[in-house]
Design a protein around this nucleic acid. Structure first.
Lengths: 194, 194
DNA sequence: GAGGTTCCATACGCATCAGTATGGAGACTT
DNA sequence: AAGTCTCCATACTGATGCGTATGGAACCTC
């Protein structure tokens, strides 16, 4: 089994291994699916191991979200750092919705769990960072500060709403070319032409 | 106690009473908080009553969502039926975000539970109806059919994202006047001027 | 090789929740 | 008045999930 294989190649687990597994579960089944015993089964050990590495489930979630927050921001910046022209950057930021699949699925899964305080704390920070990033971009494109802030909010809200819609209503998914047209429309509507 | 009072004024419960209570719980604590035993306590009875009125929890959820779907659409249409000018109607549709509090909280709570198939089925229909409503409005305002469809999607996604943001990040809530400015910005950005 | 540390297994207790089985009180029928 | 239907209480089973207590094997140290 995969469990046994994982156990053979690395006899001892680390806290990070638990966090990686937890993030995989969030990716696949959402935050509520992160349960101690099922995680242990997935890693080929028992709960005894978990409670040696972590005080409780909240500690695991906190550590996992912390790792994700840093990694997500790194991916986000890397994928946009190459654009110098602000218009291209904003376009890329929005069009990015089509790529980085795992990143988006994770973001969506976490946003759907913001009713849980631990998740809300992280997502509030992450959301704020992205809105600030967008705001700076819109200011570069010539919007007044207040306008740039509102436009940044609007863009972010549309991103979040779209993610959830697209992830959960798989019956209503548009074909890829229509999706491209939609993203183009969003860019035309929200990004001022330099 | 409120339980006893409720039991006195109406000795026998109906299925609709259970649905009303379930909707209240969704309003207060989300879909996952709808549990049979806690609902029974809230109504001043025990599980025996529930399983006489419903086959199981899914049956309750289905009936509750069905009632909500009809009521929500009725409220939605009533609150917009008085506007004849399409521009005013679209403005009202977006500005409506500020009112009808319970309606929005319920919509938000349900949207946050679209990972549950029963909820997803309802919310897919409701979302489609609202997008169609918006699309018709944008067409009235002179957008080409494809453009109107995309703009309707964008508007709806922004609505959904904003709802969740505003409901869950209560620390980051803007003051009311800034909220009004934001809504105005959204109208200016998304609704073409006739 | 004696003792200590690391990492995990086993076996609990306890709470929550879905669902079932059965009986009983009251109203209603005939 | 006997029987029946409605609505609910009580008392269970079984699954799941968090957390704890304790012991044990491997390894490292001196």
């Amino acid at each position: 089994m995969a469990n046994a294989a994982a156990r053979e190649e690395k006899a001892k687990l680390s806290a990070d291994d638990w966090c990686d597994a937890a993030l995989d579960v969030i990716f696949e089944s959402g935050v509520t699916a992160v349960a101690v015993e099922s995680l242990a089964r997935r890693l080929g050990v028992t709960k005894g191991s978990f409670y040696w590495h972590f005080a409780n489930r909240d500690a695991l979630l906190t550590a996992t979200l912390e790792r994700w927050e840093a990694e997500d921001w790194r991916i986000f910046e890397r994928s946009l750092s190459l654009y110098r022209n602000p218009h291209d950057k904003m376009r890329a930021m929005i069009k990015r919705t089509r790529k980085e699949v795992r990143s988006h699925v994770l973001f969506c899964a976490l946003f759907m769990a913001v009713d849980q305080p631990l998740v809300a704390a992280v997502m509030a920070r992450v959301s704020q960072r992205r809105i600030d990033f967008l705001r700076a971009g819109f200011e570069e494109l010539g919007l007044e500060p207040a306008e740039a802030h509102h436009r940044a909010r609007l863009t972010f809200m549309a991103y979040v709403g779209f993610l959830q819609y697209y992830q959960n209503f798989k019956d209503a998914r548009m074909p890829l070319e229509e999706l491209d047209e939609y993203v183009d429309h969003v860019v035309r509507t929200l990004v001022p032409t330099a």
